[in-house]
Design a protein around this nucleic acid. Sequence first.
DNA 1: CGATAACATGTTATCGATAACATAATAGCA
DNA 2: TGCTATTATGTTATCGATAACATGTTATCG
Lengths: 355, 355
Amino acid sequence: MLQEQALAVTLPDHKKRVTIKDVALAAGVSTQTVSRVMNKFSYVSEGTRKRVEAVVEEMGYRPSSLARSLSQQRSYTLGVITFGLKYIGPSQTLNGIADTADELGYMLLMKEIDKFNTANIENIIDSLLSQQVDGILWIAPEIGESHSWLDNSLSKVPVPMVFLAMKPRDGVTSVATDNFEGAVLATKHLLDCGRSKIGHIAGPMTWWEAEERKRGWRTTLEDAGLEAPECHCVEGNWSSASGEHAFGQLIETFPDMDGVFVGNDQMALSVLREAHRRGIQVPEQLAVIGFDNIPESAFFYPSLSTISQNLQLLGETAVETIVEMIQARQENQFIETQSRFISPSLVIRESTSPT
Amino acid sequence: MLQEQALAVTLPDHKKRVTIKDVALAAGVSTQTVSRVMNKFSYVSEGTRKRVEAVVEEMGYRPSSLARSLSQQRSYTLGVITFGLKYIGPSQTLNGIADTADELGYMLLMKEIDKFNTANIENIIDSLLSQQVDGILWIAPEIGESHSWLDNSLSKVPVPMVFLAMKPRDGVTSVATDNFEGAVLATKHLLDCGRSKIGHIAGPMTWWEAEERKRGWRTTLEDAGLEAPECHCVEGNWSSASGEHAFGQLIETFPDMDGVFVGNDQMALSVLREAHRRGIQVPEQLAVIGFDNIPESAFFYPSLSTISQNLQLLGETAVETIVEMIQARQENQFIETQSRFISPSLVIRESTSPT
DNA sequence: CGATAACATGTTATCGATAACATAATAGCA
DNA sequence: TGCTATTATGTTATCGATAACATGTTATCG
């Protein structure tokens, strides 16, 4: 399993880093002048500028952003705290974050957390702060103690923080998909398909997202003058396995169900499979709609109608928001906390409309 | 969609960072002593240690790793260059990387690249270096110019680099899944199931992974005394859509095919779907096996046999490797470049064995 | 023609820590 | 008792940049 190859040695070249001093010396100017050339927009004569630039090029000088961060007391780096990189969501969100950060000239310092205990959270935040991050993005489901921590300690964090996919809360800036809106879209769509006996398979009620989606389902039905009793809803845990199980339960307590809104696609795909196994025709006998629009949904048989979250946009918005906050603080302005919501969209496929 | 909330202002608190000087002053010792207390293992009397620790605790002092990095000329930070966070793979790999980095006391500085041009790559590496990263991990498919860049410029990078999922190459340290081994496992399994007319749907031949998987398929068949002509293989582009299309093509040129090894699960799921549509029974008439073991594969109908890459382990191994290299360099030892391979495993499900 | 503004450049202090060196106090031992 | 080792602590220089201030040189204008 370990294959030694070639002896090509990558070694010393231990030539020290080229510093601003070296450049200054070589160009016959002061370090300050070099600094001015590097940072543009300051008085430097055309001649000197060219000379310095030539030396910079020739010596391959790259300023140490470390030193710059130290002296400027800001790093152009954002801390990103993630939990559960294993779920699909964060990956696309990260993509949006990475792109936008890059665009706005920020680097990302990542920290993955495995457990939610307060000490842990504070350690991680401290370690980010000790790197002088200019702001912190929080991408983690809202469960356990994370929430109680907020009330106590958030105000102690000396840089802006933005929370992704978190329940809006006073004094906290967050960016989230509008799960309620998505659930309404989904449920309305089922109604539009002529269904009226609509069940729901929810995610774990400890998750805000699950709660919101369920609320969207209930509200829509009630607004339409229909009932949405508790027994028409079963709780899963987002996993395929739990979807299968939940569906079995639901169809027993609610046998004449003609439409079901499932809390996420992973569970919804299991529902399709399980329906097939039981000989229930989709969408004829049962219309199914999911949430998340995972790639496979489009290619399942039948393909799955769903709600698409714009996770890329979520990440982009989060970075934009935090950068605004950082700039505001830089200029010593007041910052109002705010909650931004990203609208999801309805994706109609075979599982709700007969082809 | 922007909802202003509360006026709770998160402001100044602009109390400056507590520095080592403040602590030293408060404890009535020199900064050096404080530094010694913070870094353990140096001569400090019990009394002083306790006193300093108390002050540290009380003032909430956290050393600036920025300053430490500058003065020590190392940052305990790894640069991570990713491309295509949008694919599923990197996400799990990142998970392994994040965990292990954390465990070994390193932070991660992320850079996402969007285009492969040499200038771009060098900029990104430079920007990581200017943050004093101790090493760089490269997670990007091997396509386009990335490879030519290696030969020229790799030796100029002054810190260790480890490449993930890259074709082994002299003078380069890499960690990759053994795609060939995986393909052999898959193809052998089809043979074990009694199939002998085995086709292949490959990924794009510009990808090393695709090439290796195809080679595994061909080699296994030939070793078994069977033929593996070009016309029994069609090239897709990893996407579901391309899988559907490729299968259509393949079944036409190779109508009596009784088993197919598909380059990835995404395409394989489309094959299952398409087979179903054409009334081809899986696995009775056609055994199907994929590669990657994406979560949905287990819950498809029929569930998909596949090859499981241990991406978490891939990430872990990469970090371990680079940390070894960093330490070796620290101690001024020679570093031999090496290629490590992670063995994938066979996952047998319904699509290859009748239930 | 002298004063003021705009331009060009250099000097010194600083960011927050550690390294390297220096010194002082105690302990152990011949 | 005197000498070296060990322990404990302080001083100064340094990492690589920028900020703040100082100074000198041209323009510009009334």
